[in-house]
Design a protein around this nucleic acid. Sequence first.
DNA 1: AAAATTTCCGCAATCGTTTGCGGTTACGTT
DNA 2: AACGTAACCGCAAACGATTGCGGAAATTTT
Lengths: 346, 346
Amino acid sequence: MKAHQVTIKDIAKILGISISTVSRALKNHPDISEETKVQVKDLAHKLNYEPNALALNLRRSKTNTIGVIIPEIIHHFFSSVISGIEDVAYDMGYNVMICQSNESYEREVINAQALLCNRVDGVLISIAKTTLDFDHFRHFTNQGIPMVFFDRICPDIMTDRVITNDEGGAFLATEHLIKIGCKHIAHFAAPQHLLIGQGRFAGYQRALKQYQIQFDPRLVLNCNTRDGAFEKAAQFLNDNPDVDGIFAVNDNTAIAVMQIINKLGKKIPEDIAIVGFGDGPDALITSPPLTTIEQKGYDIGTEAVKLLIHRIENESSSDSFQTKVIPPNLIMRESTDKENVLSANV
Amino acid sequence: MKAHQVTIKDIAKILGISISTVSRALKNHPDISEETKVQVKDLAHKLNYEPNALALNLRRSKTNTIGVIIPEIIHHFFSSVISGIEDVAYDMGYNVMICQSNESYEREVINAQALLCNRVDGVLISIAKTTLDFDHFRHFTNQGIPMVFFDRICPDIMTDRVITNDEGGAFLATEHLIKIGCKHIAHFAAPQHLLIGQGRFAGYQRALKQYQIQFDPRLVLNCNTRDGAFEKAAQFLNDNPDVDGIFAVNDNTAIAVMQIINKLGKKIPEDIAIVGFGDGPDALITSPPLTTIEQKGYDIGTEAVKLLIHRIENESSSDSFQTKVIPPNLIMRESTDKENVLSANV
DNA sequence: AAAATTTCCGCAATCGTTTGCGGTTACGTT
DNA sequence: AACGTAACCGCAAACGATTGCGGAAATTTT
């Protein structure tokens, strides 16, 4: 059962020629006669020979493998990113090794070490929420292994980065609410120690300022999960009955809030319009469908891996590190369609 | 910049001892004196030495890596499976190499080949919809590399398998509709050349039979996607106005149908009750929330990888292959709650 | 016919690690 | 003093592939 994997050594022995000849024959080296080449190739095919990538990698000290460390693969955003990474990596001849940190710092450290041991050619990282220390990443740069951070970047380490324009997206969302006539716009925000939380809050504020709407800190609620919304949103809406627009820091929160608004008997968007952030598939199936800011996970993945492979294959070039910003995009749906613009199409 | 990776050879040279001593010192071999061990370990730590897994793997011809071939990582079901795989693999000291077939046969073949080259210790596979030929998988068995199929299994190859009980789940779903009083239950079905399509259709039929409801082929519609539903569902519901219950082959279809029903002005569940299959997070956020059959992706992943690792680590044991069936589970939500049982809890 | 090419192929080192076996010391025993 | 025996450590082969260099045979050139 345990079939010994076929090697060039086997082929050499059977054909009564040397190992090097077999190797060269398979590579179409000009030194080898046509006759020998045909013999070797035929036998190799007959025996289902597959070159041992381990041996190759060891010799070249290159694995053609890219490591990925992400918080959680089940989040639609991250699996979109991976999908993008995988597609490009595949086209460029790289394998992908995926590790989940599960938002745990300890596990992130171990993941990093595993990738180091396996001598990946480069690493793509989106850091865990609990990670505050970044020494485990410096090992990569010490060993000359390029890194690219995406979405949740590490501000302390100079590398290439790919991020969404959180501030700009939040601005778009808030501006949209203003333009459709909302006067009292609330913001359901992420913790301000996260860059995402900062950026989206800043965009919200800039939009208010630009349209000369007085910023009211009472309209900002620290709430960025589904569960959090079910805890706090109803009370918040009761306390602030004049709120007629909500910009939520992510779709999950927005959707939960919508469900609560529905339950309170208020109408969306007539009474309260709402915008999310993320554009997962969920935004399509709520009632009403949710206006949201596109967070192009797939594109972030492709951009990140392209940057990385470029670094890998041009290690000499000391191009300065760049930060690629994926431009935001507003997707308007019924949750902000006060004028019934969209229903005309149906 | 391009730092040479530290090897035991470097350590040996610096300390003026032999390579083998270094190797043994790091492994706590009893032949080595405490003094040497301390010296070696200290230096290794100081130099950030990481053992080269490539060399190790080559020598042991074992990579501690598991290959995964799945159709598409963005589907919630598959990313749940991967999450389960990753968690268990991590605990047991294995890495995971993920490949997407993107439902393409050609790509699946190339993925399989890549995993072969990289000498993975075992493979987890859910086959692409377009795959009709299975020779590329036989290479694994030829080389003695264990495989486990999950969800979309390959009936032609004898291996371990992990599947959901489609027939049983469909029976539960249909029985539930019957029990809440539906008399004319439609089935939105997947193509019958897929095992999933067959199983779920069979469960539907068995439930009808058991409760002495006449099977009406006109109530079975070949429709298993969101787009398909938007194409055909409205017409179907018009043609069959007496339908008061629907069992859809997956959640996506069910959700799209719900949106259509809503638009037609009918009430869920009063006019039409509906059950899906899959229990993605989507089922929670529709209005009303969707009753559905749990398809435990995470559990399927953990079971599959456990079976695989068992095979890997007991290659001698020729246990006969087993097929693990994950039992179905009905999750009742408002889309079938005619009696307002659930709202009592709110 | 001798010399110069060309054609084709093999030797051996290399990548980094493990490990069986053998070789040095130093110590204790008689 | 001679021997036995630990206690430590190094040599070298092995994993599978690539590749510079050198060498033998065949062919051409002079």
